[in-house]
Design a protein around this nucleic acid. Structure first.
Length: 475
RNA sequence: GGCGACGUAGCCAAGUGGUAAGGCAAGGGUUUGCAAAAUCCUCAUCCAGCGGUUCGAAUCCGCUCGUCGCCUCCA
């Protein structure tokens, strides 16, 4: 198998992928903090890393894909207090919403989805190790990591410890030994959620869960660790420090970071997508206007590391492209259905094309998961299939090429059929309407037949007259 | 102030030394009762600007301009 090249943040270049265990991949992707609904920003890492996982499996690897849920955190506590509900109830509610939205986007569930609150003992154990090694220390506010005790601090993000000496916008904690020391275990105030620990009641620090859970499920070493570009520093830098200081082993061999989605508001410059800036685009709102698959296709249309600008009509062209794919798949089904079996024309032009398309698809994905290029292959295959159908190629050959297309669509996590919108009653109704229109057409009553078609169109139903009869689709 | 990313057609977007993929939109032909879908053709002598390296650069180097991100919660 041809080597997969992956860009890794710590080296700022592509490296050949060579997993710790041959044929197996251990990957961990930072999941959401469940304190609110999902916006389009959440969709990008989920879709990108889901696609990467799917491709690795397509390439023959057995993938252990871990993605956590942060269900204890200051934001969750604050939000729960605002709403006057229990923090755990809030977290459960938004975890459910997250999982529902991701499922609509075709994001598969991870192999393991660990929750922070279910791994408190593992985190405490990790902090204890760091205490024993003299790398962590306590203050009145909790337990802190002493970055001066970890030589490699800054190796991921390229930041040195004395970097931002000029300006720091955070109030300094005078008990800390170094300005950038970070919290491993946070002492809880009365009334706040708390777990017992050797350092008194408290809750996990900001970064410790990923080290503890990634370590637990992956024997302390990951092949790939992923997340949004904003997590590079300090989150991932701190994960490395904690994990490697504790285990003495390299925590993750490849660090992957997806670029951000920015929002272009009319008349204003683009700015980063974020709830704090009040320009959130909630997924449930986007899904009211466009099919979730269109959002997925739109995301995959840009390389995962590039910035992605979201404007109001961004998804319209993706939705059109998606329709083109559905049209093709439906045409294939009709062509193969009309002329079943047929003699297998293996070795023909279409066989060679099928092989070629798969080769190109793999080459694109092997190059740091270049989904835009992979999509170009998909569209080329669509065009070739449409032409083959037009030229009445043998259905065995059409099927062969179509099989390549559907396997590529599956790798990209795109649906293999148009979502069904009707239902049994609408089906019957449409059958009747089409029959009546058919009669009108036979009698050349085109004014009537066109009126039916135009009328349905304004209702979002498209009629298409084909040699084999009239078909309809609903938007 | 430190670190980093981006600037390719009307729009989106690949392409990291050998002469500009793909999608959307648009225009024209075929097909259709008319449409839709499909198909064929057209649509960047040029890749923010200016210099440099090279036989050769969108691709490498330098500078300039513009946009954005991280350094504080953030996917």
């Amino acid at each position: 198998m041809e080597a997969i090249k992956i860009y890794t943040t710590q080296k700022r270049e592509k490296v050949s992928f060579d997993p710790l265990e041959p044929g197996k991949v251990r990957m961990y992707v930072c999941g959401p903090t469940v304190y609110d609904r999902c916006h389009i920003g959440h969709a990008r890492p989920a879709v990108c890393f889901d696609t990467i996982r799917r491709y690795l499996e397509y390439a023959g690897y057995i993938v252990t894909f871990i993605s956590n849920i942060t269900d204890i955190d200051d934001k969750i506590i604050n939000r729960a207090n605002e709403l006057g509900i229990d923090y755990a109830a809030l977290a459960t509610r938004y975890q459910d919403e997250y999982e529902r939205d991701m499922s609509l986007l075709g994001v598969r569930s991870p192999t393991i989805r660990p929750k922070a609150t279910e791994h408190i003992p593992e985190m405490i154990a990790l902090v204890e190790t760091l205490m024993e090694k003299g790398i962590a220390y306590t203050t009145s506010r909790g337990v802190w990591f002493d970055i001066s005790k970890f030589e490699g601090y800054g190796k991921l993000s390229g930041r040195t410890t004395d970097d931002d000496t000029t300006e720091h916008r955070v109030e300094q904690d005078t008990e800390k030994r170094n300005k950038q020391d970070f919290c491993l275990w946070k002492a809880s105030k009365p009334g706040e959620p708390a777990w017992e620990s050797p350092w008194g009641p408290g809750r996990p620090g900001w970064h410790i869960e990923c080290s503890a859970m990634g370590g637990k499920y992956c024997a302390n070493q990951l092949d790939i660790h992923g997340g949004g570009a904003d997590l590079t520093f300090p989150h991932h830098e701190n994960e490395i420090a904690q994990s490697e200081a504790a285990t003495g082993q390299e925590f993750a061999r490849i660090w992957m970071h997806n670029g951000f989605i920015t929002i272009a508001k009319e008349g204003e410059d683009e700015e980063k997508m974020g709830k704090s800036k009040g320009n959130a685009f909630w997924l449930h709102e986007v899904f009211a206007d466009y099919p979730p698959a269109a959002l997925r296709l739109w995301i995959l249309g840009t390389h995962y590391r590039m910035p992605l600008k979201y404007a109001g009509e961004s998804l319209a062209s993706a939705a059109s492209g998606l329709d083109r794919i559905y049209n093709c798949l439906e045409a294939v089904a009709r062509a193969v259905g009309e002329k079943p079996a047929g003699k297998s024309g293996k070795g023909g032009k279409l066989s060679a094309l099928a092989e070629d398309m798969d080769k190109k698809f793999r080459a694109a994905m092997n190059d740091d998961f270049n989904t835009p290029q992979a999509l170009a292959v998909v569209y080329d295959t669509v065009g070739a299939l449409n032409t083959a159908i037009k030229d009445k190629a043998a259905s065995a050959n059409i099927s062969e090429l179509a099989a390549v297309l559907t396997s590529h669509l599956s790798v990209l996590g795109l649906p293999l059929e148009r979502p069904q919108t009707g239902g049994a009653e609408i089906d019957k109704l449409m059958e009747l309407v089409i029959k009546i229109r058919e009669t009108a057409r036979k009698e050349k009553q085109y004014a009537i037949s066109d009126q039916i078609r135009d009328g349905l169109n304004t209702l979002g139903i498209t009629l298409e007259d084909r040699p084999g009869g009239t078909t309809w689709t609903m938007r």
